[in-house]
Design a protein around this nucleic acid. Sequence first.
DNA 1: ACGAAGAATTGAATCGTTTTAATGAAGCGG
DNA 2: CCGCTTCATTAAAACGATTCAATTCTTCGT
Lengths: 339, 339
Amino acid sequence: MDVTVSVRDVAALAQVSVGTVSNVMNRPEKVSPATVARVQSAIDQLGFVRNDAARQLRAGRSRSLGLVVLDVANPFFTDLARGAEDRAAEAGLAVLLGNTDDNLAREAAYLDLFEEQRVHGVLISPLGDIGERLTRLRARGTPTVLVDRQTEDRSFSSVAVDDVAGGRLAAQHLLSIGRTRLAFVGGPSSIRQVVDRLQGARNAVAEHPLASIEVVDTDALSVLAGRAAGERLLERPPGDRPDAIFAANDLLAIGVLQALNMRGDLHVPREIALIGYDDIAFAAAAVVPLSSIRQPSVLIGYTAVDLLLREAEGGAEFAHEQIVFQPELVIRESTATKF
Amino acid sequence: MDVTVSVRDVAALAQVSVGTVSNVMNRPEKVSPATVARVQSAIDQLGFVRNDAARQLRAGRSRSLGLVVLDVANPFFTDLARGAEDRAAEAGLAVLLGNTDDNLAREAAYLDLFEEQRVHGVLISPLGDIGERLTRLRARGTPTVLVDRQTEDRSFSSVAVDDVAGGRLAAQHLLSIGRTRLAFVGGPSSIRQVVDRLQGARNAVAEHPLASIEVVDTDALSVLAGRAAGERLLERPPGDRPDAIFAANDLLAIGVLQALNMRGDLHVPREIALIGYDDIAFAAAAVVPLSSIRQPSVLIGYTAVDLLLREAEGGAEFAHEQIVFQPELVIRESTATKF
DNA sequence: ACGAAGAATTGAATCGTTTTAATGAAGCGG
DNA sequence: CCGCTTCATTAAAACGATTCAATTCTTCGT
């Protein structure tokens, strides 16, 4: 049943040349109405479907662009992807989504795949350093834009949110409601966002005479990892526990919340205040509605594709642009002062 | 900087024929070690990257498979995608993810795209009827497996969960805790899962002498749509409200919960019990931990790809298989009998 | 009725990789 | 040192759509 019908077959049936068939599909205005009809009907009759590989081979580039994220299961990234998809669709491009699970090998595999596919460009939230790989990728002609990641390297375009500012915002808020023994829950430190948010929090704490901050390391930014971290905190004697937790993202915060909640005697925010990061849709619906740092996720994706397209057009002489959005504090019950 | 280097260039530099270069990449054991080294170094030196389009053109099929889902933002589908990705990776295939937002036109666009890409096969959770489109797609040689969707049409392979049974499970549970005025929150009815779950609930209600069920229609299966539905219920006079809500999925349930929670005087589960569907990770962490119907999401994805691969190998004489998993009731606070 | 201008159509070349039949080189037993 | 097999390598023919220069066919003004 694997009959593969090509333009030749269509051309034969419609009694025209292959060139005409191609014209019918790509610039029908150049073909007489009668022929268009004839070719069209031949296409329908044979169930002809364009072979994109052949098309691409000739065109030199595919009609899609790659998006490499840390974790598709994180609503922040699906929102971002949504924004990217919207802008891409406007330009007639599809988005190929790859998720790395914080895994360098997977990141590399996706980049290779996308490069072999000759995608129009790559959007990536890279792990660790920018690395030779990305530099080479771009040098070989694949426009690359960093998302959700600031960079000192001005040679790359990027769309990000100021994570240091966000971290500061979160910590300042915790300090402002009278907490002083903060804990930062997050990791691994190969993820830049984690490092930056912690740095921001540290900066805020440093300005406060009595405050301190400790780090509770996690091996992923997931609900599960958050729960594990929460349980570790619970094992400590009450006096030794922090009075406020800043989680590196909302998934972690929700996990921490789940762990704390299993202990009836430990109240959030009375005993421990909690703030997350990203303000995903579920944050507002958590057991204790979660304070968080909001990022314009959809807009980030949209803007990143926009930048990518401009870079793709502009060519080598394109001035790389670094767009930085400012995060926003969202206060909910998990950091309330009255309870 | 868009220098495109091809096998010819590599061949020239390494002083071998293009065929040999190809052999080095695809079956190095056929080539003498010395030549392999020479070619490899030429590849590195030139930064040669295979052109996948040309490769595919020759091969006839791409090395990926398409997955079309209703909503990537729904954790149920990202879990499913994860399972699919795992199995696909074992077979050396990549997964292209397309999301339709319950939109027929988008569904069609993705199917066309995937067919033009000559993917190895398509996994789809189709809207509405199976339709001529899917039948044609398969007839033309693209193996197709339905996911999360049962079908009377035994000519398609499918991996699903018994949604009618799941709906029945949910309603029976609500009835078992003494509720009689049920409301089903869900829609649109173009989504088969919604219709089946409602049917199951109706069946259960029909067996109970005093019980009734009404339908509160939504235009999507999202948190936002759930919140809107919840608000509509709140506008009604207290006596006219249901005493239990079955939401077509957890996102809706969480939305409903958000709406009900805004009214301090309305307690879940005291005034209104609430159960969702899918048992996503956030269900357990909701304001009121959410009862739900669990589906083996990751396993569904994994199994579906497995089936797809077998179908792709087996060819036309392959016996289509319908795999149906059974859903499972998960009871949490939102349907507790004591409060 | 002639030639020019324009419209429609054609056919061959092209994109870059894989594959296969053919060629050449080397090894070996007798 | 002659045939024979084995191994490495090559050259050319695909794959299927697009494009562009060349060709044929219309139409129309004079």
